[in-house]
Nucleic acid binder design. Structure first.
Lengths: 170, 170
DNA sequence: TGTGGATTATTGCATCAACAAGTATTGTTC
DNA sequence: GAACAATACTTGTTGATGCAATAATCCACA
């Protein structure tokens, strides 16, 4: 049986497909536990980034950069989370154009409640399926790639949180 | 400075975040070349799966399974591609409920035209950034994960294409 | 100090995808 | 062979997200 279809079987294409399928499949496995708490993957991403930031707060723009959402997308995610009381907005005293998204106590509780199940899922479907050596290799390779394709992924994490200034970025 | 925020810094969470950021960043790099031809990532995924299948055709359901889209999602993707002449529908003679999506000559041409640039992007932002050893390790690990999280990812690929029957699936 | 250009966030609009319901066909069981 | 359940696909509706346009504010520089 003929399976070679020329350029359409380039191994690099296959590699990209493998990455895409793995990621999509993995996400499908972790969605339910989050959804049980009423959180989408995006919601969780926003909340956990706030939780990890100094003052449990981040400028809207930084949130957008970190999550790879558009600023309008972030506006709406924060709208929804604010409506549920998990996040609140605070105007930035140093720059009155800007706003912080701040994790509320309720948000922190929701997050703490769902993290355990989420980590269990990750362990079940990802980290726990590989030997320590395989996992280290994988993460090392991913870091190399990530640093190339998303140089700004850590925008705003150092400590602009309290001042709202951009000194830490780029 | 305090950076440890307890459970929110679990290394497994970080690993998952790294995978997500890498994949999202990579996709952002490969989208433009596809978009230049008017194709979304989903469009490309559908077209290339058809190109690789026997008879350049796949049942709608198999397409849905392989792409991880809902069947209604596939209906609409194929609607759009059919509207542009890149794909056509053929009723399945063996099961009149069903339809094949079939890659047209025009679709094959579009695909051939964009694959080169696409492969170049993948090489530039993914496979070319790693040593052969790193890449092998990465792909090996991904295969382990993929086989767990997406056991049905190859639904319909063996040779159900000509009969429309399901003998090859699951 | 005033002016023009950049930056921050929000809103209107269009697109895309999922869920649920509906239609047509197939297969199974008695 | 008739009835009923399962399957394949489509359509109506809803929600999420990006782009473009807008408003408010900041900053650099004359």
């Amino acid at each position: 049986m003929i399976t070679d279809t020329g350029v359409f079987d380039d191994p690099r294409l296959t590699a990209m497909g493998l990455l895409a399928e793995t990621f999509a499949g993995l996400q499908a496995k972790i969605v339910p536990a989050l959804a049980a708490t009423g959180l989408s993957v995006t919601d969780f991403d926003v909340l956990i980034r706030l939780a990890r930031s100094a003052g449990q707060r981040l400028r809207m723009t930084h949130l957008a950069t970190q999550t790879a959402l558009s600023t309008s997308g972030i506006t709406r995610v924060v709208d929804r989370l604010e409506g549920r009381g998990l996040v609140r907005r605070e105007i930035c005293p140093a720059d009155r154009r800007g706003a912080f998204a701040v994790l509320t106590d309720a948000g922190q509780e929701i997050l703490a409640g769902v993290v355990q199940a989420h980590v269990r899922d990750i362990d079940r479907w990802f980290t726990g399926l590989l030997t320590p050596g395989q996992l280290d290799g994988l993460l090392g390779a991913l870091r190399i790639l990530r640093d190339e394709v998303r140089p700004g992924a850590t925008a705003g994490v150092v400590h602009p949180a309290l001042t709202g200034k951009n000194e830490a970025v780029r």
